[in-house]
């Protein structure tokens, strides 16, 4: 009876989560039609994140599971965030160092006259 003792998630619980997921989908569609300026993008991401957490905790049963699986997922997400943060730290803050065409920065070195 090895797997007989596993937690069986009640149908009611699964149905509630499914209902919440549909509701959040409706919410993200409606809020995206309204111009909220800078709020639109963070709001859409927050709703998507909530949906993902619902799926991971209940449908993927992490809420009831051995915590090592949750640790693996969280570590994976942490590294994805590090990847995103460090990349944006470069692309957003790189300044003029990437511009190599003459005349585009004050520190431009005159091109060598090789022709």
């Amino acid at each position: 009876m090895a797997q007989g003792q596993h937690h069986i998630i009640p149908i009611r619980m699964l149905a509630i989560v499914f209902g919440l997921l549909l509701f959040l989908t409706l919410a993200t569609v409606i809020t995206a039609q309204i111009d909220l300026g800078l709020v639109n993008v963070p709001l859409a991401l927050a709703i998507a994140g909530s949906k993902a957490i619902l799926v991971a905790l209940v449908f993927m049963a992490l809420k009831y599971d051995n915590k090592v699986n949750l640790l693996v997922l969280v570590l994976g997400v942490v590294f994805a965030v590090v990847f995103l943060a460090l990349t944006l730290a470069d692309t957003e803050l790189r300044g003029t160092i990437g511009i190599t065409e003459p005349g585009t920065t004050e520190l431009t070195v005159e091109p060598a006259e090789s022709e």
Binding site: A32, I47, A48, K51, A52, V55
Partner: peptide, 18 residues
Amino acid sequence: WHLVDIIWIFLFPLLYLI
């Protein structure tokens, strides 16, 4: 399958909505 669903949960607003 749930992970494939989660990926789409992010793709939908990012590509279609905002």
